[in-house]
Design a binder for these strands. Sequence first.
DNA 1: GTTAGCACTCAAAACAATGGAGTGCTAATA
DNA 2: TATTAGCACTCCATTGTTTTGAGTGCTAAC
Lengths: 350, 350
Amino acid sequence: MQSEHKLDDRKMKILQAIIKTYLDTGEPVGSRTISKFTDLNLSSATIRNEMADLEDLGYILQPHTSAGRIPSDQGYRLYVDMLMEEKEQEVTEIKELMLEKADKMEQLLKQVAKVLATNTNYATMISSPVYNRNRLKFIQLSHVDEDQLLAVIVMDGNIVKNKIITVDQELDNETLLKLNMLLNTSLNGMSAEEINLGMIARLKEQAGIHSGVISDVLDTVANTIKLDEDMEIYTSGTTNIFKYPELSDNQSAKEIITAFEEKQQLAELVTQTMARDSSDVNKGIRVYIGNEAPVENMKDCSVVTATYELSEGLRGTIGIIGPKRMDYENVMKTLKTLMVELDEKFHRKE
Amino acid sequence: MQSEHKLDDRKMKILQAIIKTYLDTGEPVGSRTISKFTDLNLSSATIRNEMADLEDLGYILQPHTSAGRIPSDQGYRLYVDMLMEEKEQEVTEIKELMLEKADKMEQLLKQVAKVLATNTNYATMISSPVYNRNRLKFIQLSHVDEDQLLAVIVMDGNIVKNKIITVDQELDNETLLKLNMLLNTSLNGMSAEEINLGMIARLKEQAGIHSGVISDVLDTVANTIKLDEDMEIYTSGTTNIFKYPELSDNQSAKEIITAFEEKQQLAELVTQTMARDSSDVNKGIRVYIGNEAPVENMKDCSVVTATYELSEGLRGTIGIIGPKRMDYENVMKTLKTLMVELDEKFHRKE
DNA sequence: GTTAGCACTCAAAACAATGGAGTGCTAATA
DNA sequence: TATTAGCACTCCATTGTTTTGAGTGCTAAC
């Protein structure tokens, strides 16, 4: 890590030119190209000298002698940071996001992923929103069979969970009513942290011989609250990676696609991303270049993530995965726009 | 379609040898190989003659002159049908299927898919079980907010669905109780077909000003009953296709993987498979070779499916997708064994 | 009916030649 | 002193050529 990233203006411009060109072509870029296609008016020789410097500083590298240069991870990083700093970009209209008539959340998420994938030509993922400060809103036990109860649990944000509980001794309606009362009066408005052992003991005591049911219910509550348990991840456009030769060889493709199928690693990425503060200036947009992402298999990729918020505390993550030579500028802009869209869609009170 | 598939014994043996060898190597197989590695004791020249015949009959083909032969779809078909006929194979133990402690159905399904994928080295899919004769078991409306109701619907087989319903005018507890009574008494035990327009009209009439709620509930019921709506498909080992060069070129890989990601087409395959009778001798095992499968993108693959049954009427499908030169024998045996496992696991009453 | 043998075919592998993009260095220039 | 022109050099990618070997079909002999 060079701490001195005091690149002079010209080096900066050249680096930028190299990266932009490389993003476009995917081919190593040579001095002559830069000399010709920038308004710097420098000869290729001069560029060459500067390039040698940039290489020494670690911003670019040469696949082999007598090839042009390509950006290093460090180079990309500088470039991306620079983009980040640029004052709020004019938010361009995203034309017809087609989000309109999606009724079920799941479908909407899938749709967003798909739209993003086709618009950007990268692989995308989106995580279902999870609550990070869940409170119980409502609990209900009902008979559904002689020996089976149905427990329905509703959390803040109307997240609903069910569990079928099998009981040994049959409960009459009155007992059930009592249990319901007990549960609701004790637990409503509680968060996971607030339901401690003492409370549980007290509940069980009051439930008497039916304490087993209480246990089952509390288990379900615990499960409902647990985050990643519940986090679904939808992906789309995985095969877009075939558009980028540097990712299409069997080995890389295999690794990336496996990561997309297993989803375990993506979930980690999401969790990690959301753990960090996400309410910063950039609408929670993050860029992981190469090894910066905590996903083993994506060392040859870049990942751009954005955190969306449906309502206070209900958050999810959108991610775009592509080659390092990703069109960062466009991707970031698109994500930013999408965030705004979603904000508007959800924050004007449903 | 040659209707006369009266292959004499020798031709049959040769064909079988060709297919088996090809399954192994993936390379076109020549006359000399067959001559040497079978106990037929025939010279390569003889084999060549026979091969020419087999080619005329459409069972094998030549990628180009002076290459060996590979099985045609028709050849595979004959081979597979033959395997099917073989008397019930000894069901070998599947060692440690690890099914033991999977509690949630979803996890179990995923696990099965994974186990299959790693065991067979092919891509696998498994559909969640769906009921094909759904009956309503229980309905309940509850207050969860001032202006929101929660509808819980339980079907036969304890499939639970929820829906949050927003109401204009607040309902008092008494009304809610009445509605619940009304719904349960009228609908319990009903199947989708039995809930007809007349019934709906009668219900609405009895509900009076709250008929809007009834509509919403019925909508949810309809949704719950609708099959594919609810069918989840889990996949595993998609990248196994990279193990087979004939499927790993960018184009094929892209198509197959897309099919696996989108799942739409897989769902169709499942639906179609289940539609056919599935209680035949072969434990509902089907083989689709090349274009036989209704999945556009898999014309270069073979698909082996098996239908499992958790309890009366609750069925799902397992599928294995691989190259045409799939190890049919092993795959079919494995699936058959797995079916037996699942049967045992679920049919001894949970 | 089976086989040995031979001429022929063709894809894949090995090899050779060419071209061109790009570099580093040096010496001349402003 | 910073820039540039120019040149020799490197090396990959491309293309073309040759070689090799597996495999075939056919014919004639067994």
